[in-house]
Design a protein around this nucleic acid. Structure first.
Lengths: 141, 141
DNA sequence: TTAACTGCAAAAGTTTTGCAGGTCG
DNA sequence: CGACCTGCAAAACTTTTGCAGTTAA
């Protein structure tokens, strides 16, 4: 399940098919997002080190998101949080007090999603849902 | 269900009890949020007109949120969206394509919320949930 | 070779902060 | 009257953009 650094991964071909180029910066940004789980552009920039300019991080994230390789949500206050799209779908549980982020399987959403599709014709993107509230630890305080 | 502009509303007493003051700016900001449903700080600033400085809008929103009178989420890309906390709980359905925001009753979340509380001890804040996806109109295109 | 990409720096946009004067209580 | 608030302007941040040099293909 590790990410092969081989030559012919599907997304690389997709990327080139669209006329884009495969650069080391883009690979490093994608890898950093994978390592961090979910992270802000700034955190990603730190992860990749000083070899990649912050502007490039932003531009890479935009491209990678357009390719469907990463996604972003707004987990806490200001900054967007990016994560790899390929990983198993899950729901984020963000604690308002301690800022911890728990996860639960997205299969819990199935009934809800089905109902919404049925009533509104709206297809929910299950890949990245964030729910806010208070975690068990903070509730006991 | 209208908002009385009477003298002794509960939140006003709460506010004073905490040592804060009831100013016309704060009343106008709260009223604007109610009128707009959900709005960014800038939109709120326009709604209240030029009688209230943008800085004051930010400071008022922070205070009102601290009092539990308004809440904020991130519906679309950059800016936070504020809404009154007292209104009926509902789930936002944000279309990624046309940016429309639909709503469905929060009672649909009950089973999900119950399961999460059971498994993780995490109490979800049902008041303001946003789900992203594609609306019926955009799906048919 | 050449069109795309990166780094740098400046610009644009958003949110916060310091302070002098105004006002609620 | 006194502490809290507001408006204004500047500061601090975040994200975007223009350009010249660099590089993947």
């Amino acid at each position: 399940m590790g990410k092969q650094t081989g030559t012919g991964e599907a997304w690389q071909q997709e990327l080139r098919a669209r006329g884009y180029r495969l650069t080391p910066q883009r690979q490093r940004v994608l890898e950093a997002v994978g390592v961090l789980g979910h992270a802000t552009p700034e955190a990603i920039s730190e992860q990749v080190g000083d070899g990649v300019n912050l502007s490039t991080v932003y531009r890479s994230l935009e491209l990678l998101e357009d390719l469907g390789l990463v996604r972003h949500t707004h987990l806490n206050h200001g900054s967007p949080s990016y994560s790899v799209a390929g990983s198993a779908d899950h729901v984020h549980l963000v604690c308002r007090d301690c800022e911890a982020v728990l996860e639960v399987g997205a299969e819990l959403l199935q009934p809800l999603v089905a109902t919404i599709a049925d009533e509104q014709g709206f297809s929910v993107d299950v890949g990245h849902v964030a729910l806010f509230g208070r975690c068990a630890a903070c509730a006991n305080r």
